[in-house]
Simulated scan of single mutants.
Amino acid sequence: MIKLIASDVDGTLLPEGTADLNPELYDVILKLKEKGIVFAAASGRQANSVKTVFAPVEQEMYFITNNGGYVTYRDEVLACRVFDGKTIEEILAYVRSLENTFYLVTSPDGDYTDCQDKEMLEWLREGYRIHIDQIGDVMEKADCLVKISAFLKDKDAAKEAVPAKTLFEGKAMVTAAGDHWVDFTAPGSEKGNALKELQEHLHVTAEETMAFGDNNNDIGMLKNAGESYAVSEAREEVKAVCKYILPDTNKNSVLKILKTLL
């Protein structure tokens, strides 16, 4: 019997960079909870962005955000993994050296950038619904950062993440979190680790867990679920670790699977 469902958001429940979820999912989440099945949104996005997407049911579900670096339920923080200051300096120096790249940093109290790209800021605020503030230097927030995100406008994130993984091995988790997003999180910040912790917290086994995803940052999570689904548009390496592949490109395909549990 399934007791826990964890789903990626961008590319799985929503087109990347949007926020208008099918409202039918809210009703399904509530009905699943009535049956004793917990729903968790597991996203590379920042907490405030994901919670905005699920606002009508925010108090009834769990949030694995920032690729597992920040895990919450209502007002309770279940996990918060932060960088050390020296690593932040090194990552920012690396990200700032990349051409045509926008970056932002995330702390438990908000999201910040010192980039001046107005078009990107508008997209992040209106598309992802991120409450992002412009400040003089993001190092002002270096005392408590859970994620540094780089948007590489002209490059494939999965390929660009490879050299960064080598460069920051042991210092940070580096993953492709979208077509152009490369995320840097503190050691141990990974959706798979966060799902394991949530399973322990809820006394749920992997066999009692269902998960959905599409990108490389979902692989650990999918491996820790007995019932794992990749959407049809998922990367091939994601499909390779999943038990099932959803048959069509309709974003409601996840919703259809959830409704079978009801």
Rank of each mutant, 00 (worst) to 15 (best):
G178L: 04
E233D: 15
R235K: 15
A41G: 02
A161R: 02
R45L: 08
D218K: 02
L14A: 13
Q199D: 14
R125H: 10
S7W: 00
N67K: 07
A47Y: 11
P163V: 10
V57W: 02
T12R: 07
E24P: 13
E34N: 10
H180L: 11
T113M: 05
V57E: 02
I29G: 04
T12L: 05
K223I: 06
T249V: 10
K51P: 07
L98Y: 09
Y112R: 10
V174M: 00
K153A: 13
I132P: 01
A161E: 09
N215I: 05
E126S: 14
S7Y: 08
A6C: 11
F212Q: 04
E207M: 15
K147L: 03
K243V: 05
T113Q: 08
L261F: 15
V204H: 04
L255H: 13
H203F: 04
G17Y: 08
T205Q: 14
P247V: 09
E227V: 08
E119Q: 10
V254L: 08
K141H: 10
K259H: 12
V231P: 07
E58T: 07
T18A: 04
M120E: 14
L30M: 12
Q134N: 13
V182P: 03
N66W: 00
E227M: 05
N252W: 02
K31A: 12
S253Q: 12
T101P: 06
E236A: 14
L145C: 02
K171L: 13
E24W: 11
K155N: 07
D84F: 00
M139W: 05
D111R: 00
T166E: 15
V9N: 01
N22E: 09
V9F: 06
E24I: 15
K259V: 11
K155E: 13
I91W: 02
V238A: 12
T249Y: 12
A186E: 04
I37V: 09
Y112T: 12
S253H: 11
N67R: 05
S7L: 07
Q199A: 12
C80M: 15
H180Y: 14
I88D: 02
Q59E: 14
C144M: 12
F63V: 00
A93K: 14
A47H: 13
A55H: 13
D75C: 05
V50H: 07
L145F: 00
K35M: 12
E119C: 01
D84P: 03
